[in-house]
């Protein structure tokens, strides 16, 4: 009973920990169309926080329509652009999955060489015990690469968190971050997406991030044929992919989820536990 109640309440606590939830209202503009205005709550202490305002675009027409403005949290989207942390993240992402298969044989593994090639003394030649010693042509290799060599390691937890905030901030500062209201597009034709990307100058490669891993059918079908347009859920967001793609497109729900999760990580009270050494068997 209590275990279930604990779990339940922790879930509630997590929800109540969201103190930076956007309030989205649809305001009527002078033109008669409804504009989305998504605001962050007021900063209770009025500290160094100027929300970044970004246009919300649409995807259902090739031409860009500005649907409204969303305020982005400065701790996530206007963090210090730490290029050193970004580099550490990229290096980690390349290395942790890399296994080197370079391989050489030692003198014990090369075939033959069990017999002493010539007597120790009396011939005037150098002393040798095996024709497969590293000194010999065709002999084994001393200290050569051995397969498989893993390069797995874990980057410290908060270096990974700051990598995400830094990269998101860099993307926003370089005008490579676009917010769309949702991923609804009218056709499943890849040409539609290609035209849209061409028209909006979104660069050759585009990473589209939604909150969930179930995307609408049309955009899934349209992007599956184009190698340089990729879809990703929020839980898959990573530094390497963000840098690999020229443009990052976030849906509004993705922005909310990213903001909530990253702010939680930046403010969590048990951060020291996350900084412990990574253990494989725990």
């Amino acid at each position: 009973m209590l275990v279930a109640a604990v779990r339940n309440s922790l879930r509630n606590l997590r929800i109540s920990a969201k103190r930076d939830v956007h309030t989205t209202i649809k305001a009527d503009t002078a033109g008669g169309s409804a504009a989305i205005i998504s605001k962050l709550p007021d900063d209770p202490n009025g500290l160094f926080r100027e929300p970044r305002q970004v246009w919300v675009e649409n995807l259902d027409t090739v031409e860009e329509n500005k649907l409204g403005i969303i305020e982005l949290h400065p701790d996530v989207f206007a963090a210090q652009p730490r290029i050193d942390i970004i580099q550490e993240n990229v290096e980690w992402q390349r290395k942790y999955r890399y296994v080197s298969f370079a391989h050489t044989k030692t003198r014990a593994e090369v075939r033959g060489g069990g017999r002493k090639p010539w007597p120790q003394k009396g011939l005037g030649r150098a002393r040798h015990g095996s024709i497969r010693s590293p000194l010999f042509r065709g002999g084994g290799v001393a200290h050569g690469p051995r397969s498989p060599t893993t390069h797995f390691y874990m980057l410290p937890f908060f270096t990974r968190v700051h990598g995400l905030t830094s990269t998101l901030s860099v993307k926003l500062a370089q005008d490579d971050l676009h917010i769309v209201n949702d991923l609804a597009i009218p056709s499943s034709d890849p040409k539609y997406l290609q035209e849209l990307i061409e028209k909006r100058n979104w660069g050759p490669s585009v990473l589209i991030v939604d909150e969930d891993d179930l995307c609408p059918e049309n955009i899934s079908a349209a992007s599956s044929g184009i190698a340089y347009v990729n879809l990703m859920p929020v839980y898959g967001l990573n530094v390497y992919s963000m840098l690999k793609h020229n443009t990052l497109v976030l849906t509004m729900s993705a922005v909310e989820k990213i903001t909530e999760r990253l702010l939680f990580q930046l403010r969590r009270s048990d951060g020291f536990k996350k900084m412990e050494k990574f253990k494989l068997d725990q």
Partner: peptide, 19 residues
């Protein structure tokens, strides 16, 4: 399994805030 038992507030008092 009990949802929101009345004694739960005493447990909550002991829990550390998450943030």
């Amino acid at each position: 399994i009990v949802r929101n038992p009345p004694e739960w507030k005493y447990v909550e008092r002991l829990l550390r805030p998450q943030t």
